[in-house]
Nucleic acid binder design. Sequence first.
RNA 1: GUGGGUGUAGCUCAGUUGGUUAGAGCGUCUGGUUGUGGCCCAGAAGGCCGUGGGUUCAAGUCCCAUCAUUCACCCCA
Length: 413
Amino acid sequence: MIKAIAGTKDILPVDIQKWTFLENLVHRILTNFNYKEIRTPVFEETKLFKRGIGEATDIVSKEMYTFIDRSETSITLKPEMTASVVRALIEHSLDKQQQLNKLYYLAPMFRQERPQAGRFRQFHQFGVEAIGSTSPILDAENIVIAYMILSELGLKNLTLKINSLGIPSSREKYKDLLRNYLSDRVNELSEESQNRLNTNILRLFDSKNERDQAIMKDAPVLLDHLDEESLRHFNDVKELLSKADIPYEVDPRLVRGLDYYTHTTFEILSESVGAQSALCGGGRYDLLVKEIGGRDVPGVGFAAGIERILLACENEGVLPDNKNMIDYYIVRLDKELDKEVFEIATKLRDDNKTVEVDYSQRSVKAQMREANKFGAVKVLMVGGEEFERGKAVLKEMNTGEQKEVEISDFMKS
RNA sequence: GUGGGUGUAGCUCAGUUGGUUAGAGCGUCUGGUUGUGGCCCAGAAGGCCGUGGGUUCAAGUCCCAUCAUUCACCCCA
């Protein structure tokens, strides 16, 4: 048997309602915030992601689906959306057509990681990118959007964590400070953390090693060494979140690896999924557009994992499974009336009704059972002497009540 | 890439210290007297017990390998 590739999943008819429900919610709320949807190709030139995400990151160095196509171009299935959106923005000069572009998307992403709860190799994200403004209002707006969507689904047990990375110049100064603090204790650090000293020193705070944690406990914190403007920006964001009644936790350990990330970072975590508890994450990237080859345009955005959100919904028992009903089931009383039933069904469907019929000459009982299974509101029984008189029996399934009706009434367009 | 768990019917799972034709519930299909659903009752279909090797008189059960899957680490959404 040929099976779906590891880490990929079929979304079957039984699951699809949940997906469309969430998708519709995303479209509705983002429309309310006046964001415009953008769709980009599932694959891009590999170098876009190398520049847009960073060669040193795990995503680029070991998780991308990359291949050489027939014209010898290195192609990569997109592992995230921001680089693609920024590419499209630059390519079509959206940033020159208007000062601020508020964009959103909903799309599949691909990363070759080991699958686990809430993590797949093909997964889906929705997210937003607000490109063209440094206003902290947009940072806050991003967070409000994410929080609103998750709350509206009915999710509880959410934690919003925020942090500020400041700007590269103050961050570098801080990193020196941190290196200085660690200089005489390097040998006490775990091997993993020693490696990070050069690649991503801020991640040392994240170590699960107890000895590392003890050392980092008294280390200087970036938030205490922000420049004045970054501090003001961060305070503005916090104030705006309070005005929106959104509870948050400041978490100095919330970092992004690369230099073009600036100011705000945030994550919303759920206790209702497994270890991969981040439902969404994002932040400000004032230097990214330029890095990818555009003008010096600031931006802020986030991405949310749809599978994780639906998993959380599943585990919290929200998203009532509204079983779908059909308007009519047409029961064929006489076996030779297939074509007449087909004609009536077609007319009803043309009249925007959901209609099901039997396709295999089954007994009336079997047809009625199926009508019940499909949740038919009404059953139309066609055949017998009523049919000779141009009539059929219409049954209301919830009351069991039935009456004769003119077939011609159903044949009107 | 590293570590742990699990593979028996479409699904969820039983299957005793190895011992005859491998079971249940749900689902599917059929029937319970003329042309009427749900509840109930009866019946049917559906299994190379993941795959390959080994131990044994005998393997779903024990051992090894392999594949799949799942959870966790790393990292991320």
